[in-house]
Design a protein around this nucleic acid. Structure first.
Lengths: 339, 339
DNA sequence: TTGTACGCGTTATCAC
DNA sequence: GTGATAACGCGTACAA
């Protein structure tokens, strides 16, 4: 009972006494088919355990059923969430997911990606931030006749080629919440210049302050690079300010963890003396002490939507493009002076 | 200059005035070829930017150049590290990496995976723990004529089909180190029963104690499930023990973080009153306070080696199978009573 | 509604 | 060394 030789469409055709075109019609669910013929063929297919060969299909159709995930260096959880979302969509389809981590700073980045897409004849690619912000890259993909969907934190592209989180609004709401709790001196740790997400979060912060009627204070805004260390260093500066901020919004969780560390070293209690909000809801957020209030964007549904746009370009415009993030409220925030 | 129609082997053959079989020989580096012919063809290939179509190749060769990564739900960083390692190996080859997250508890797991392998005609698959421990699954893969390499924390298979970390030895050494620092009462948080990694780490702990001449104490060993919460609960039990352990080895970082949390709640200082060692060196480890001493296994090189075994079954036996882990020493450990 | 003949881009066979 | 020609498994004109 070895399946050394997998059954082909010809086997199915022969055993069911029809032509292979008919079998092909059954497989592709052609509407104009005699019901009894269809059932007969389907029975043989089930009996043989026949599975169409995607390579042959790809060859004949001149397009492949692989969708590529190209990403640089966002956090691991995000990449995995994206993979899960894509898989939810392509499960039970003939598509498969092929991944390609790249180095944003590689001088051969463009060539690498072009080669990857050409070589694998990808059906479509999903670009993750931050490289999704690279318009030149997007052009390369399109040039290659490869559908493209970008994930990002702002409207990087038209709705058919984009799935975005509304970072700006999320931060605005977070700041509004802090202000509503009574915080008047709210610090900010920005992400690295050049990242769209960093920019959006910064704008959201500024807008949030304005809406709350609070004046921005240059002494309470420090730029980091999304890494723990930079959050720690930002903490040194922010916590030296006088008067000290009673709350700080950090543009991501890692920097928030660094800030928390700096606060602890100075004996500043979180949250009673300092409230902290992060962004991303990475694994760290829930596992530090106190657990970090943070903004969580719905990665899995976003990726699932992106994959839909990828495999069904027709319906791409009608699918949801903009996703709102939730504020996950944990113990790192309280009203000021609530010791 | 649109590349709507990608150049095929026929174009190359025509333009260089040879047959396509000759071009094929050039591509496949056949040794019996006139040097001048080869150069001529290579020039045309470069000029045209010709890239062989992997689908056609796959069809003709009756095997695909996709290697599958099947994993359940280990931590995100591990999966990503594995992906990076595989990519290091297959970069500049014609292979691509296709990923498949699965649910270990799904009743259709076997069928799903069988279908995945058959449908994509995978060249080989890499199984990650914990599903790599499932021998039935391995059999399915082999049945399908698909090369298989398993990653794990013990010798699950023969060297040609295995890449493993030596968890047992790593834990033994960690315990030896604690004992060397003067710890006599060392607690243990085990991983969930049924996981090979949990078993190996537990054995390592027991052996380590024995080597240090310490007697195992049932009151100081608690079983968790690799999650934060269970570490916290284990902490409640361990820290109620009297006398209290002066050090605890946790079978992974998340549980160690939970333990740390429990210690903090009771006002037990880490590391002066309690030393903690974790396992895995996840992102959490470096970002909690105090930074966690932990065991790091070389995921990326392991995955790279695994990929080599996959794409070159001939050389599989000669490649390294067993990898040793490092103890990453951070602030969560000190000698007992060193307040 | 179903079948025939051919093409998709590559490799393998076996001649020359 | 090199080149016709036939696979590989499936889809599509076009015909029946």
């Amino acid at each position: 009972m070895k399946r050394d030789a997998k059954p082909t469409i010809n086997d199915v055709a022969r055993l069911s006494g029809v032509s292979k075109k008919t079998v092909s019609r059954v497989i592709n669910k052609s509407p104009l088919l005699n019901q009894t013929t269809r059932e007969k063929v389907e029975a043989v297919i089930a009996d043989l355990g026949y599975v169409p060969n995607p390579q042959a299909r790809a060859l004949a159709l001149r397009r492949n059923f692989l969708i590529g995930l190209i990403h640089d260096n966002p956090n691991a959880q995000m990449v995995l969430g994206v993979q899960e979302g894509i898989l939810q969509t392509i499960r039970d389809t003939e598509f498969a997911l092929v991944v390609r981590p790249v180095d944003r700073h590689s001088p051969t980045l463009m060539e690498d990606i072009r080669h990857f897409i050409e070589q694998q004849r990808l059906y479509g690619v999903l670009l993750l931030p931050p490289i999704s912000e690279n318009d030149g890259l997007a052009e390369v993909c399109r040039d290659l006749g490869c559908t493209l969907v970008r994930m990002g934190s702002a409207r990087l592209d038209d709705d058919a080629h984009l799935v975005a989180s509304n970072d700006r609004q999320a931060v605005r709401e977070a700041v509004a919440w802090l202000a509503g709790l009574g915080h008047k001196r709210i610090g900010f740790i920005a992400g690295p210049a050049g990242f769209r997400s960093a920019f959006e979060r910064e704008q959201g912060f500024i807008e949030g302050l304005a809406e709350a009627g609070l004046a921005p204070d240059a002494a309470l805004a420090v730029r980091g690079d999304y890494k723990f260390e930079s959050g720690y260093e930002a903490g040194q500066r922010l916590l030296d300010a006088s008067p000290r901020p009673t709350a700080v919004f950090s543009s991501n969780d890692e920097m928030a963890a660094g800030l928390l560390h700096a606060a602890r070293e100075r004996g500043i209690d979180v949250p009673t003396q300092l409230s902290i909000i992060g962004f991303d809801d990475t694994a760290i957020a829930a596992h530090i002490w106190p657990p970090l209030t943070t903004v969580r964007w719905p990665i899995v549904p976003m990726a699932a939507a992106a994959a839909h746009k990828l495999i069904d370009p027709e319906g791409a415009f009608t699918r949801q493009s903009l996703f709102l993030s939730d504020l996950v409220r944990r113990a790192s925030v309280t009203a000021p002076g609530s010791s």
